[in-house]
Simulated scan of single mutants.
Amino acid sequence: MRPILDIQHVTHAFGHHTALHDISFSIKQGEVVGLIGRSGAGKSTLLRCLCALERPQQGHILLDGVDLTTQTERQLVRARRKIGLVFQHFNLLTSRTVAGNIALPLQIAGRPRKDHAKRIAELLALVGLEGFEDKYPSQLSGGQKQRVGIARALAAEPTLLLCDEATSALDPESTNSILALLADINRTLGLTIILITHEMEVVRRFAQRILVLDHGRLVEDGSLLDILRDGQENQTLHKLLADIRPSLPAFIAENLSPSPLTEPHKTIIRLVLSGDSATTPLFSMLYAHYAVKATLLQGGVTTISQRLSGDIILSLEGEHIEQALAFLKTATQSMEVLGYVPSHP
């Protein structure tokens, strides 16, 4: 099946500054993808290229088989209607009602005016704002404004929805409701969604697949589990993951040594679990087979992309630590020794 979006070796520069370096990836119909990176990573430039607001110096961007980099301006007007945009600060017209804001893409696309009311009603029901058509943006909460923004983005029935920091201006409760709405839209409409953000917590809860940009380069393309596994060696991923990964308790971190101690000590490890390893009785197996006692210090098991997954920090103490570590390395997705602390600090 042909991907709905195919990015081929895209490079784009502003003067002597190269904002995007040889970016390539493709996205299938119905995928939910998180595009993440810190400030200056190239997210905004890539977004503008995806919307055909910037034309890269090298490479190709194919949307539903049409190469946006070769289209004339007149052709791009039509191509952009296949892309819905949801903005961080909503970008609603304050002089228009909710219905008026949602109708704007319909007017631009030249849809018959007699069809507007039905389409607006459908979209308001979809985003949970029935009865709000005559209200103005000033009468809405932040979460409600973003729901209007989503309805407007969907008005012309796009094939791709780009959400640019769509939850960054919202409180935690509104963020949860917007992410739930986007997930419901994906399930209901089969719509392909790309969420551009700097917040790993947002993509952890929402995205099936994560793209990581760093200094204009694509440094990771995979699931959150892939990123958790690779994050111990990749400094860019390590920094992005810092906000969502369990961290060492202070009393452990203060006494942690990078090398084994001569005195009795505990080995501190981090495990990434998924699928069978998330439900395997690892603690009892460690004690039964290796006489090693395991204590959970931080973390736990949760559901990621409909699979049980875990990211945990343990302390190990006992007779056959090396054999136990070898077992854990094969029985889990990732095992990392963080250091060593005295048995009785």
Rank of each mutant, 00 (worst) to 15 (best):
L126K: 09
G149R: 08
V127F: 00
I120K: 03
I120L: 09
G149K: 04
E122A: 13
K114D: 07
V127E: 03
E133M: 03
V127K: 09
Q144Y: 08
K114Y: 08
Q146N: 10
P137W: 12
E130A: 13
L140I: 04
K135V: 01
G128M: 09
I120Q: 05
R111F: 11
A117K: 15
E130P: 00
Q146W: 04
S141T: 14
F132V: 08
Q139I: 05
D115W: 11
Y136I: 06
S138H: 12
Q144P: 02
P112H: 12
Q139V: 04
Q146E: 05
R147S: 11
R113S: 04
K145C: 15
G142S: 12
R113L: 13
G110Q: 02
Q139W: 09
R119W: 07
E130M: 14
G131L: 08
G110P: 03
E122Y: 11
G149A: 08
R113G: 00
D134T: 11
L129N: 07
A117H: 13
Q144D: 10
G149Y: 06
D115S: 08
R119F: 05
R111A: 03
A151E: 02
R119H: 03
G131F: 04
Y136L: 12
F132K: 12
R111E: 13
D115P: 02
L123K: 01
H116M: 07
R119N: 01
Q144K: 12
D115V: 08
P137Y: 06
H116R: 07
D115Q: 14
F132R: 09
I120F: 04
I150P: 04
D134A: 14
G143L: 05
L123D: 01
Q139N: 14
D115H: 12
L140M: 13
E130T: 14
G143Q: 12
Y136G: 11
L126D: 02
Q146C: 10
A125N: 11
F132C: 11
D115N: 12
S141V: 06
L129F: 00
E122C: 07
Q144C: 05
L123F: 07
Y136P: 00
G149Q: 01
H116E: 09
H116N: 02
E130Y: 02
P112I: 14
R119E: 00
H116P: 00
L124M: 12
V127G: 01
G131T: 09
R113C: 03
A121R: 15
P112M: 06
A121Q: 15
E122S: 05
V127P: 01
Q139A: 13
I150E: 05
S141M: 12
A121P: 07
Q144W: 09
E122Q: 14
G110N: 03
H116K: 10
L126N: 08
G128T: 10
E122W: 15
Q144V: 05
A121K: 14
G142P: 02
G142V: 08
R119Q: 05
L126E: 04
K145W: 07
R113T: 01
P112S: 10
S138R: 07
D134H: 13
E130F: 10
L126H: 03
I120A: 08
Y136V: 02
E133F: 02
L126P: 00
E130K: 09
R113W: 07
Q144E: 15
A117T: 11
G149W: 02
R119V: 04
L129K: 06
Q146T: 08
F132W: 08
F132I: 05
E133T: 03
